[in-house]
Simulated scan of single mutants.
Amino acid sequence: MLRSNILILLQLLGIQSYSVSDYYWRDYDGKIPPDAIPADNNNNTYIGQVYVHLYGLRVGTIIPGYREVEYSCYGVGKTDTMIKILCATESSKYVWLRTTANTFLKDTCGKSPIVSGYDRVCCGSGILNIGRTRQQGRSIIGNVAAYNTVTLWFYYPLNGREIRDPPNTEYEVLVYRNTTSKSNYLNEYKNFDLLG
């Protein structure tokens, strides 16, 4: 329980845990900062983080020009206050890894999925990662329930409902890559989508 509270405090203060230290959350005021990590190749969507009272930190899709973020949290919510946007010194160090709820642990073994928030309601160790799907011609950001060691479900908002696809449905998780050689990168991350 103490470890869980420390993680929440670190996230709220903008201090990053794990070995990834070059990403951070900036206050979002409706303008996209130049160091924001895009959620797609066209810079049409970005990754937002919101605090949901009594539930914890969640992520959702930021669309340039809009101040409101829609997120999933035991249903769907929207907010235009207390929004942060994911930024990094080098966005090229972040890639989308294809996975499923059933294969997440195997697919991310040795990788660094980005911690996006915390679910206070679940089992007491509710770490969330950043997930992405493509629906209705657009990228949608949601929460990967990384605290479940059996099936790591991906939850996202769509048409006013919270969606959890069947366990074999493919989604993507944002991971950090710290590979300096292009040939090493191509071999190690051949199943990744470069922020695409």
Rank of each mutant, 00 (worst) to 15 (best):
G48V: 13
I47T: 12
G14K: 01
Q11H: 10
V20N: 09
V52Y: 04
Y55W: 13
Y24D: 00
I8D: 07
Q11G: 02
L7R: 10
I32H: 05
V50C: 15
G56M: 15
N44V: 03
I62Y: 07
S17D: 01
I15Y: 09
N41Y: 14
Q49A: 14
G65V: 14
Y23Q: 04
Y18R: 08
Y55G: 04
A39F: 02
I47G: 02
L7V: 13
G65S: 08
Y46I: 05
H53W: 02
I63C: 08
Y18G: 02
D22Q: 10
A36K: 08
Q16E: 11
I63Q: 07
I63L: 05
S17K: 09
N5T: 02
S17H: 07
R67T: 13
Y46E: 07
L7N: 05
I32V: 15
I47C: 06
A36P: 01
L10W: 01
K31T: 15
D40L: 09
W25P: 03
G56I: 14
D40S: 07
I32E: 07
V50I: 15
I37E: 03
Y28C: 06
D35A: 05
G14A: 09
I15K: 05
R58F: 13
P64E: 06
W25E: 03
N43S: 11
I62V: 15
R26N: 09
G30I: 06
G65H: 13
V52N: 11
Y51V: 11
D40C: 13
Y66L: 13
D40R: 15
Y51E: 05
T61K: 09
Y18F: 09
G14S: 04
P34R: 10
R58G: 06
L57S: 05
D22S: 10
L54K: 15
P34Q: 14
I47D: 05
L10I: 00
V52E: 14
S21H: 13
V59H: 05
S19H: 08
Y24E: 01
I47F: 06
G48R: 10
V50E: 05
I47N: 11
V20Q: 02
I32R: 06
L7D: 06
W25S: 01
N41C: 08
D35R: 03
I6F: 04
P33I: 14
A36D: 04
Y55M: 11
D35F: 12
D27R: 12
S21K: 15
I62T: 07
G30W: 11
Y18N: 12
L9W: 01
Y46G: 12
L10F: 07
V20W: 02
P64Q: 05
P38K: 12
N41F: 03
S17A: 08
P38G: 11
Q11V: 01
R26P: 00
S21L: 03
Y28L: 04
G60W: 13
V20A: 10
L12W: 11
P38C: 12
K31R: 12
G60P: 12
T61S: 12
Y24I: 01
Y66Q: 15
I62E: 08
D22E: 13
N5E: 15
I6E: 10
V50R: 09
S17T: 15
L13D: 01
D29K: 04
